[in-house]
Every structure is written in structure tokens, then in C-alpha cells.
């Protein structure tokens, strides 16, 4: 198990390097000129050139890339020659746009994305898995058909549509909920758990509508398959109660694909929910990433891409490890 973990973590580092290299290269050949963008309205060719040197963009590609990597290992120097500043470890550089330290920017944006993710994941897991299980138990009956129908509908609703409709109805027309504010970043702040919940509730619902629908489908199909397994018949033949049969025997056996999907979605969500953050004006990673990418802000884009990749790979490893806990047959190998 330990050896397995080490091998996976090694592979994870290599993968992150590859991702960073690809992103870096793509930026080199992209159309955006960060130097021109950062020097503002009244720009002369000389000022652009100055900015280019200050941002380090005058150096060869590999030197730039290695300089970026060095910031991941220890502190590094940033800025124009003669006016260098120390950037403490972990250094992801400074924003070309605002000159802010990228590490700080990420530390700022992350809590919003985490808030969004945690609530949405809990909501869609409970609703999606719950309804999927219920539908599987009522297979072919009215309740099942209604749930499957609703899921097909939900899965085809894009986030911008659900999000805007929710905002329009609950914030605009009914006024039951406040508009999302940047002031609330976690349930531990002044606003408390209740304030946090009301702040993010609509965004959670918008995400949950889409994701629950997928979870309903995968849960239902998996559970129906599991319920037809021989060991489920054995469980009934033992005289076990319905609850024990369904949960201890059925859900336990059919949970693996759901855990897999949940892990992957969780990883992807933590990298930033671009659309949702835009619509609900949540200044999380997705929001920041879009702004950075459209303005050619290489350090910020790099940092968020790598963080997103890191989360996805991390949760992949977590999913693999969780298999060993779920299924004893995996433990042997």
C-alpha cells in the first residue's frame, strides 16, 4: 500500500510537470502579448520593451520556464534588473495585470471555490444518490419514471440557464435570498453558517441540478444491476430485513462507480467552476482564471491550471486508494 502510494505520488509530480510545460508552451505561441497588455493605454514601443524586461519575457523560453519552476522549489527574484524583489516560496510569480503576488491571489480565491464546491457536492450527492437509489428500488413504477424523466431534463439544463432563472426568481422577484456577496468566504466568519448557506445556496442549487441528474442516472443503473446480483438473493434468503439488504448489501456493493465519479467531479470542481462563478459573481478560482486567461496574465493562468490539475490528479489517487477500502479484492494486488 505504501509503495503504491509513493508510485502514484511520483507519477503525479511528473504529470504536473507535463501540464505546466504544456500550458507554458501554449502561452508562448498564443496571440496575447502580456507586455503590451500590462503597459496600459498610452503605450510607446519603448515602454512595452521596458515592461517586457520587467516581466522577464525577454529571456529565452526555457530560461523563463526554469525560472518559473525554481519558484516552486524555493524563493525566487522577480522584477526588472536592478529593482528585483524577493518572492517567497512557494512563488508562482506576480500577476502581469495587477502586480499582485499570485500565491496570495490564489489563497484569496480558493475559499470561494471551496465554499461553492463543498455545498454543491453535498447537495448533489444527497439528492442524486438518494433519488437514484429510490428510483432503483421503485424500478418501472411511477416514481421511477418521474425521477428518470426529471433527470433527463436536469442533465440538459445548462448552468447559465438554471443560474439566471434561480437568481431572477428567488433574488429578483421573490426576494427570499440576498444577492451573492464577496464578503462571505466561509461558514466560520461573521456571517456564520446560516449566512454562508444563504449566500451560496442558489449557486449550489444551480450546480446540483446538473450534477444530481447525472448521479441519479449512474446510481439508478448501478443499483438496479447490483440488486439483480446473486448475493442480493442470498441476502434475502437469509431472512435479512429490507434495510439491511438494501444498504448493507446493495449500496455497499454498488457504491464503487459512484465514489469514482464523485472523486473526479470533486477534483474538477476545486479547480474552479467557471460558469457558475461568473454568473453568481463569486470571485473564486474559475472567475480569476477567466480574467487572467483573457488578459494574457501568464503567471495567474499557469498557477490556476496547475492547481486544477493537481486537484484532479490528487482525487484520482484518493479514488484509487478508496477502492482498496471498499473492495477487499483490490487489496491483494
Amino acid at each position: 500500500m505504501i509503495g503504491f502510494l509513493f508510485r502514484r505520488l511520483g507519477a503525479m509530480l511528473i504529470l504536473l510537470l507535463v501540464v505546466s510545460f504544456i500550458t507554458f508552451t501554449l502561452f508562448q505561441f498564443g496571440p496575447a502579448d502580456p507586455a503590451a497588455a500590462s503597459c496600459g493605454q498610452e503605450c510607446t514601443p519603448e515602454r512595452v520593451e521596458q515592461a517586457r524586461i520587467a516581466l522577464g519575457l525577454d529571456k529565452p523560453f526555457f530560461v523563463q520556464y526554469l525560472a518559473f519552476l525554481s519558484g516552486l522549489v524555493g524563493p525566487r527574484m522577480l522584477g526588472a534588473p536592478g529593482a528585483e524583489q524577493v518572492c517567497a516560496w512557494p512563488c508562482l510569480g506576480k500577476s502581469f495585470q495587477t502586480n499582485e503576488n499570485v500565491t496570495d491571489m490564489i489563497a484569496n480565491a480558493l475559499p470561494y471555490t471551496v465554499s461553492l464546491t463543498v455545498g454543491a457536492v453535498v447537495l448533489w450527492t444527497v439528492v442524486g444518490v438518494g433519488m437514484g437509489l429510490f428510483a432503483a428500488l421503485r424500478k418501472g413504477k411511477l416514481a421511477d419514471r418521474l425521477i428518470v424523466g426529471a433527470a433527463s431534463f436536469g442533465v440538459s439544463l445548462p448552468i447559465p440557464v438554471t443560474g439566471l432563472v434561480l437568481l431572477l426568481v428567488f433574488v429578483g422577484t421573490l426576494g427570499w435570498l440576498p444577492f451573492t456577496t464577496n464578503a462571505i468566504r466561509s461558514p466560520f466568519g461573521e456571517a456564520g453558517f446560516f449566512g454562508w448557506t444563504t449566500n451560496y445556496l442558489l449557486a449550489w442549487i444551480a450546480l446540483a441540478v446538473l450534477f444530481s441528474a447525472q448521479y441519479v442516472r449512474i446510481t439508478r443503473n448501478n443499483m438496479i444491476e447490483t440488486f439483480s446480483e446473486d448475493f442480493m438473493r442470498t441476502a434475502r434468503a437469509k431472512g435479512l430485513s429490507r434495510g439491511t439488504i438494501v444498504f448493507k448489501h446493495g449500496v455497499r456493493a454498488g457504491i464503487t462507480p459512484i465514489v469514482t465519479m464523485l472523486g473526479l467531479d470533486l477534483g474538477a470542481m476545486l479547480g474552479g467552476a467557471v460558469l457558475t462563478e461568473q454568473i453568481f459573481s463569486v470571485p473564486g478560482l474559475g472567475f480569476t482564471a477567466v480574467r487572467a486567461a483573457t488578459s494574457g496574465d501568464l503567471p495567474v493562468t499557469m498557477a490556476i491550471t496547475m492547481l486544477a490539475a493537481f486537484f484532479i490528479i490528487l482525487f484520482n489517487v484518493i479514488v484509487d486508494v478508496s477502492y482498496a477500502f471498499i473492495d477487499p479484492r483490490v487489496r491483494v494486488n
Binding site: T234, A237, H249, P328, R329
Partner: peptide, 14 residues
């Protein structure tokens, strides 16, 4: 009591 044809699939794998 009841026993089945394929004991591998008739027992819970976990």
C-alpha cells in the same frame, strides 16, 4: 435454508 449454484457470486464479495 437455501444454497445456490455459483457460490462466488452468491456470497457478498466485500
Amino acid at each position: 435454508g437455501m444454497i445456490f449454484q455459483d457460490p462466488l457470486s452468491a456470497m457478498h464479495p466485500f
